[in-house]
C-alpha cells in the first residue's frame, strides 16, 4: 500500500501542477485580450463616434458629389451642369487645355474635376512648376486647341481677357470661338 502511494503522489502533483499552469495561462489569455480590446476601444470610440455624427443626410441629388466639390473649390452652384454648358460653346475640334499648379493639391484636383465634367471632349492637363504660365504655354498652337481653363492659376495677360467661371477658375476661349 505504501509503495502504491509513493508511486502515485508525484503523478498527482504533476497533474495538479499542470492544471494550475493551464489555468494560469487561461487567465493570462483572457486578461490579455480584455485589456487589448479595452485599449482598442478607448482609442477608437473618440475618433469613430464624432465622425459618425458629423454632416447631415443629403441632398439626394443626381450630381451630389461632383456639385459639392465644384461648389467648395470654385463657388459655382450646380457646376456639373453649368460648366459643360459653357464648354459646349467652344469649338468642337482640338483638346481643352487645363492648366493647374504642380504640387498644389487643390489646383490639381480642380483640374481633374474639369476633366471629369468636360467629357466627351479631349483634354490635356498642363502642370505648371513656375508661378507664371508663360513658358509652358508659349509652345501651344492656338489653332490646335479649343480653349484653356486655368485652375487656381492666373492666365497670362497676352492670352486676352479671360472669362471668370468661378472664384478660382478662368476660361480663355480662343479668338475663333467668338
Amino acid at each position: 500500500m505504501s509503495n502504491l502511494l509513493d508511486d502515485q503522489t508525484p503523478v498527482g502533483c504533476n497533474v495538479s501542477r499542470k492544471l494550475t499552469h493551464m489555468q494560469l495561462r487561461l487567465y493570462i489569455h483572457i486578461g490579455l485580450w480584455c485589456a487589448l480590446f479595452a485599449v482598442f476601444l478607448a482609442f477608437a470610440i473618440p475618433i469613430v463616434g464624432p465622425a459618425l455624427v458629423e454632416n447631415q443626410i443629403g441632398p439626394a441629388e443626381v450630381n451630389r458629389s461632383i456639385d459639392a466639390y465644384i461648389l467648395a473649390l470654385t463657388g459655382i452652384e450646380h457646376g456639373s451642369e453649368k460648366l459643360p454648358d459653357v464648354f459646349s460653346r467652344l469649338p468642337k475640334a482640338g483638346p481643352l487645355i487645363i492648366v493647374v499648379r504642380k504640387d498644389d493639391s487643390q489646383s490639381e484636383f480642380l483640374g481633374m474635376m474639369i476633366g471629369y465634367v468636360s467629357w466627351p471632349r479631349e483634354i490635356k492637363l498642363i502642370k505648371l512648376a513656375t508661378p507664371t504660365a508663360e513658358k509652358e504655354l508659349a509652345g501651344i498652337n492656338p489653332d490646335s486647341i479649343s480653349g484653356l481653363v486655368f485652375c487656381l492659376v492666373d492666365p497670362p495677360a497676352w492670352l486676352g481677357k479671360p472669362i471668370r467661371l468661378g472664384s478660382s477658375i478662368f476660361l480663355v476661349p480662343l479668338p475663333k470661338t467668338g
Binding site: E54, I57, S65, M113, Y116
Partner: peptide, 15 residues
Amino acid sequence: FYVSFKHTLGWDGLL
C-alpha cells in the same frame, strides 16, 4: 447605411 448618405464620394471614389 445612414452615414454613407451623409458623405459625398471621396476623391478616388469619384475620379
